[in-house]
Amino acid sequence: MDDTDTHLLRLLQHNADTSHAELGRQVGLSATGVHKRLRRLREDGVIKRTAIVLDRAKLGLDLMCFLKVNFKNNLASPNLDELHGAVSALPEVLECYTLTGTNDAIVKVAVRDHVALREFLQRFSEAQSIIERVETCIVLEEIREGNDYAVPKPQ
């Protein structure tokens, strides 16, 4: 990757709908040159996929929560397998990570309201025989959201 690649990635993170011609204008390449670079970045796995960002509120998903999860037997392999299965089967789950520290995992969830949250928590706990404790943290305000990485300069 060079400076032009990193510039392209920064621009695309902000708006993946930007045309190749406009990207080329901003980085000093032709549209064809941009297309070739983006194809290479996809082939190299730097760009994993292109996605759209939906407005959660306009979809009626007004409640965002983080679940801090503790397992009965820490991060033992069966626990991870069961967690993978549970979060894959629950469409309310946006993200899930295993952690170091006092919690074993954190799960990001979006639901309509507190009733939907209660129903989700019931389904989540039923799917997880390995959970010792779940602490639910309700998001009061989203200060910054997104998946924009600080793309490092080439070395």
Score class of each variant (00 low, 15 high):
residue 115 V to W: 00
residue 61 L to P: 06
residue 11 L to E: 09
residue 51 A to V: 15
residue 12 L to D: 00
residue 98 T to P: 02
residue 133 R to I: 06
residue 22 E to S: 10
residue 56 R to T: 10
residue 33 G to K: 10
residue 110 A to K: 00
residue 29 L to M: 11
residue 99 L to G: 01
residue 17 D to E: 13
residue 41 L to D: 04
residue 145 E to C: 06
residue 70 N to C: 07
residue 149 Y to M: 11
residue 147 N to F: 13
residue 17 D to N: 13
residue 6 T to Y: 03
residue 135 E to K: 00
residue 12 L to T: 00
residue 65 C to G: 04
residue 89 A to V: 00
residue 116 A to W: 07
residue 82 E to S: 08
residue 84 H to G: 08
residue 59 L to N: 05
residue 153 K to F: 03
residue 26 Q to N: 11
residue 83 L to K: 09
residue 119 E to Y: 10
residue 79 N to L: 09
residue 120 F to L: 11
residue 62 D to M: 07
residue 49 R to H: 10
residue 127 A to D: 11
residue 106 I to N: 02
residue 30 S to D: 06
residue 32 T to Q: 13
residue 43 E to K: 12
residue 85 G to E: 12
residue 71 F to C: 02
residue 21 A to M: 06
residue 5 D to R: 03
residue 36 K to Q: 14
residue 83 L to R: 08
residue 13 Q to K: 06
residue 135 E to Q: 11
residue 117 L to N: 11
residue 57 A to M: 10
residue 129 S to D: 15
residue 128 Q to W: 02
residue 66 F to S: 03
residue 8 L to I: 07
residue 37 R to A: 11
residue 119 E to K: 15
residue 86 A to H: 08
residue 117 L to A: 12
residue 100 T to E: 04
residue 130 I to M: 14
residue 43 E to M: 02
residue 69 V to I: 14
residue 47 I to K: 03
residue 53 V to F: 04
residue 84 H to L: 10
residue 135 E to D: 06
residue 99 L to I: 01
residue 136 T to G: 01
residue 44 D to C: 03
residue 93 V to P: 14
residue 79 N to A: 15
residue 118 R to A: 14
residue 21 A to L: 09
residue 86 A to Q: 13
residue 77 S to I: 12
residue 133 R to S: 13
residue 88 S to K: 13
residue 82 E to H: 06
residue 51 A to P: 01
residue 46 V to I: 15
residue 31 A to E: 15
residue 86 A to D: 12
residue 28 G to H: 13
residue 47 I to V: 15
residue 13 Q to W: 06
residue 3 D to W: 01
residue 62 D to G: 15
residue 57 A to E: 15
residue 117 L to Q: 13
residue 59 L to W: 05
residue 98 T to G: 09
residue 152 P to D: 02
residue 46 V to T: 15
residue 93 V to D: 08
residue 4 T to N: 04
residue 59 L to G: 03
residue 10 R to A: 11
residue 110 A to P: 00
residue 24 G to T: 11
residue 77 S to E: 09
residue 38 L to S: 02
residue 41 L to G: 07
residue 151 V to G: 03
residue 117 L to H: 10
residue 40 R to T: 15
residue 120 F to C: 07
residue 108 K to D: 02
residue 30 S to T: 15
residue 59 L to E: 09
residue 56 R to P: 04
residue 154 P to K: 01
residue 150 A to R: 01
residue 84 H to R: 14
residue 132 E to P: 01
residue 7 H to V: 04
residue 36 K to F: 10
residue 24 G to N: 12
residue 88 S to T: 13
residue 79 N to W: 02
residue 12 L to F: 05
residue 126 E to A: 09
residue 11 L to V: 05
residue 28 G to R: 11
residue 154 P to A: 00
residue 13 Q to V: 05
residue 144 R to T: 13
residue 58 K to S: 15
residue 18 T to K: 07
residue 43 E to I: 08
residue 59 L to Q: 12
residue 83 L to A: 13
